[in-house]
Design a protein around this nucleic acid. Structure first.
Lengths: 227, 227
DNA sequence: CCTTGTATTATTGTATACAATCCTTGCGGC
DNA sequence: GCCGCAAGGATTGTATACAATAATACAAGG
């Protein structure tokens, strides 16, 4: 039950890092709903720390767009709407396609090996119904893809989005049918990368994300786009 | 000579906001080169503030990936390489295309009017050789496109990148030939949006960014991708 | 009764003090 | 000479104190 998807900013052994992770999770989970005001002292007391680490966490949350800070006034939860989730999946579908394309040329042997192992293990745990491991492996597969792209910028960006929709993804994967299908799609992406077929890799990664998106909507996890 | 491209985090009337903006600019401009260690006290003294606002600015810079903070040790400048710039232009080419596509359905009348005015004014100032106004209008055109996409997420993301490559863009636009050509491309994007032609809008916005990218390389502003 | 001004209070912004951690340096032993 | 290690200093992490700003309540005047 540990998410370390986003290193670099979480730093879970400092108070600030813990406050940051905790608040982000609480906002993403809906504990603090949209528009609510977060007071530094109240948060600090709740977590048993002073205002300093809370303030630093606030500044980070603002940059992530999760809260809006009005100077000398307060911090207000922005939250994440169904539309945001939909948008992120569309963006991800395009950017993951790009990551897969670039991975064809930049993936290292170590990354390739870990990816193969990942696909193998995912198949195993899916058959056994180990949802927690499935979740972790799915996380790792995508992270590997990002890292293999060889682009610090793209990797950073996709990890951000990945983290952002974490809550939704957890529900999605545990659905009985999506798990195996997702594994097949991972395997296809991996094969395309191994064969150095950039067009296929991009298309498959793109479709993979679109499928995840459709699944989410079919399951009623988020509202479809109404126009 | 003022950039307010990125509201929300800059907040230039607080010490933290000023420290943040200043440090980001200095890193992007190369004043602090890659790998250098930033000390809270030194930065604070240089800007005449205490450690507190400096620390908060550091946390934000870390989240933007401009510095790397190693707990209990220090903050190190990560910087922005030529490869980063190239990657951002490729990402932007795809995402701006998406923004243009979405803008077809979501642009408001006000935004459309401002965009038309923008294109008109840009033509005027380009003929007169007013580089500062050209720069501002180019900024604004892209911001308008982002806002017109109707996606908070996409807008946020693209504004980030826009800000990130600000320094490079300033050099690019002032080149004699790129200015008029860029204006023509803006106009074409605007026309496609007005005609509700999503495919054209996406393609043109995409090409616009690729052209900017090629121009940058032709002018020798950044190194080309060597493979 | 409504408006406006002011005093009070609550909250954020900043500075400083203290604690914890890391790095350096120099000493001693081998 | 080289390695280990401890003491000191430097730097970051956290807490608290003080300043500035904004919200609120209430009273005075129209």
């Amino acid at each position: 039950m540990e998410e370390d998807v986003k290193e670099g900013a979480s730093d879970k052994y400092s108070l600030r890092g813990r406050v940051f992770s905790r608040l982000r999770e609480d906002i993403l989970n809906g504990k603090y709903e949209e528009g609510i005001e977060l007071r530094e002292i109240a948060i600090g007391e709740e977590l048993g720390v002073s205002r300093t680490p809370v303030r630093e966490a606030f500044r980070q949350l603002e940059l992530e767009g999760l809260i809006r800070i009005i100077p000398n006034k307060g911090a207000y939860v922005v939250g994440i709407s169904d539309k945001d989730v939909r948008d992120i999946y569309i963006l991800r579908s395009r950017l993951e396609g790009l990551a897969a394309r670039w991975a064809v040329d930049h993936i290292t042997n170590e990354q390739l090996e870990e990816m193969e192992e990942n696909v193998y293990l995912a198949k195993f745990h899916t058959e056994k119904g180990h949802t927690e491991q499935m979740f972790e492996l799915d996380n790792r597969f995508h992270e590997l893809l990002y890292e293999a792209s060889g682009s610090k910028i793209l990797e950073h960006q996709l990890k951000d989005y990945h983290q952002y929709v974490l809550r939704i993804r957890k529900k999605t994967l545990s659905s009985a049918k999506r798990g195996p299908q997702s594994n097949l799609e991972h395997e296809a992406i991996l094969e395309a990368i191994k064969k150095k077929n950039a067009d296929d890799a991009e298309r498959l990664a793109n479709e993979h994300m679109i499928n995840a998106y459709k699944n989410m909507i079919d399951k009623g996890l988020i509202k479809p786009d109404e126009i």
